[in-house]
Design a binder for these strands. Sequence first.
DNA 1: GTGAAAGCGCTAACAC
DNA 2: GTGTTAGCGCTTTCAC
Lengths: 325, 325
Amino acid sequence: MARVKLQDVAERAGVSVTTVSRVLNNRGYLSEKTINKVHRAMEELNYRPNAVARQLFKQRTNLVGLVFPTVNNPFFGQLEAELETRLYELGYRVVMGNSQNDPQKEERYLQLLFNGQIDGLIVGAHNEGITAYHNTNLPIVSIERIVSKQIPVVAADNYRGGRLATQRLLDDGCQHIIHTNYPASSSTPNQERRRGYEELMEEHGRQKITYEISFDSPDPEKAAVFTRIFAEHPECDGIFADNDTNARLAINAAVQAGKRVPEDVKVVGYDGASSTRLLFPDLTTIQQPIAEMAQTAVDLLQKRLAGQAVESVTLPVKLVSGITG
Amino acid sequence: MARVKLQDVAERAGVSVTTVSRVLNNRGYLSEKTINKVHRAMEELNYRPNAVARQLFKQRTNLVGLVFPTVNNPFFGQLEAELETRLYELGYRVVMGNSQNDPQKEERYLQLLFNGQIDGLIVGAHNEGITAYHNTNLPIVSIERIVSKQIPVVAADNYRGGRLATQRLLDDGCQHIIHTNYPASSSTPNQERRRGYEELMEEHGRQKITYEISFDSPDPEKAAVFTRIFAEHPECDGIFADNDTNARLAINAAVQAGKRVPEDVKVVGYDGASSTRLLFPDLTTIQQPIAEMAQTAVDLLQKRLAGQAVESVTLPVKLVSGITG
DNA sequence: GTGAAAGCGCTAACAC
DNA sequence: GTGTTAGCGCTTTCAC
């Protein structure tokens, strides 16, 4: 059964393809009678317009790519769900790419843009050194990731978040606060969390210690870092983790090291995604405004697609209190 | 700057478009010299083949749709991540649709298939009464959802999962076990969880009580059901929740009702997704083989795309022990 | 080994 | 109001 096309409908209705196309798109002057005839023919043949042919002509696909490390994560899961919702309302469908640990995969998704398979891209992947981004004025927006000079970044206020978390632990009376974050070399704005932590620690004359944990390493490896923290710093009584799942690992390690949380060690996390709040409501954390970040990224992308210049945006964060810190 | 196309490359290299196309696709006999000439021209012009034009000719897009309630959920998040990984390896990209509470949205994603914008579909959405599925032999596979007679279902062994969970609570000495599940009318295989629970309860001469909670209702509403459970059944000492987030809500409600978990009430959940295990390791739950389900769904879809007949598949589940039940 | 030309299904000038 | 036709960028038969 070959696909029914415009021409089949035209023949059936006894009109030209142009007319059918006009009916389809509600464009131009048409008599009631013709419209009805065409509609009837479409129904009889169960006609479905071919989206790809239309895309070829229009030179746009109404597809936007989403490239993040993995959607199997409370933060990115919520973020991508929010992005899809908003883009859908604007008539875009979303192509999802999980690029964790695979720069080549990220690059392949970027190729979709150059191949005209998607109209734009929202990225938050962590792979380094992808040069194709340096192309100027691409319809790309990034979230919490510095990709290249010409690509606008949507981020929450990481510096303030770092200070908020650290301040909370100081207020709670912690003497020896340790921070975890990505390797300092990585081009993500959450190095600012570290800066917030370090500056505040210095202001209070405290020793600042940051352990590095790559986002993309497997969980057991991450857990081992926290085990090491408590082994090397038995005096540690406060942990500011750079995300909530790491905060959980910190708590596990603390308990295994024979410490009670929050009596002996207090822990503050970062992200505050909805499913984390639901599953682990006891966690004290810095909450990122995920919905607003998604909305902002979509706004910027729209402008960028319309050829307008856009600036990076920073949004506020807030601390939500659990009982761990 | 107009896009560079095949013809531009051809002119530059002094050959025909056919030849360039052949070089591009590595097809037919070509002299080394020509190949080099063409490659050089492509590089000089920074040529990118237009994917949409190719799709139009080939009548396939290498895009597969994923339609689930929401990716912002530990189970679906992990499932969709696994699906994307496997489909990517086969050369497919993934269009993600979150259809929670919106049958029209689900239908729109289904239209992508009829419009030739995607080659196939993997669905696990919960909306009822979408008739377009009844079309025979569509390249669609469903996961944990009964869509129509002709569409194969990949599911974990829900009946056995229901028995496993209930048995665990019985073994723990629970006398009054209450179950939660979707409304009985909904066409999802996890009604089998309920059947497992009910049959086992009957076998033990116990009263079976199931409270209904729609997957798509907001969290506070779900929480209210558990509050009601403990108000109406103060004797309740065991909860078998139909998913892990509901298990968490059950625990919250129990604590608020002045009960200790697991001393006074034991709770067993369902799903055992990776991020749930990480954030809430204490939870006893029935773990679905999410990776295998994804792999199986992709296998079936591939066969279906190749025109082969396929059968529904049921995979085994297992109980993982925490301390809540 | 290489090229000319038809066609994938649709849209939009332009003509009448 | 409606039709003719070129063309979106690519692939592939068929011919030489």
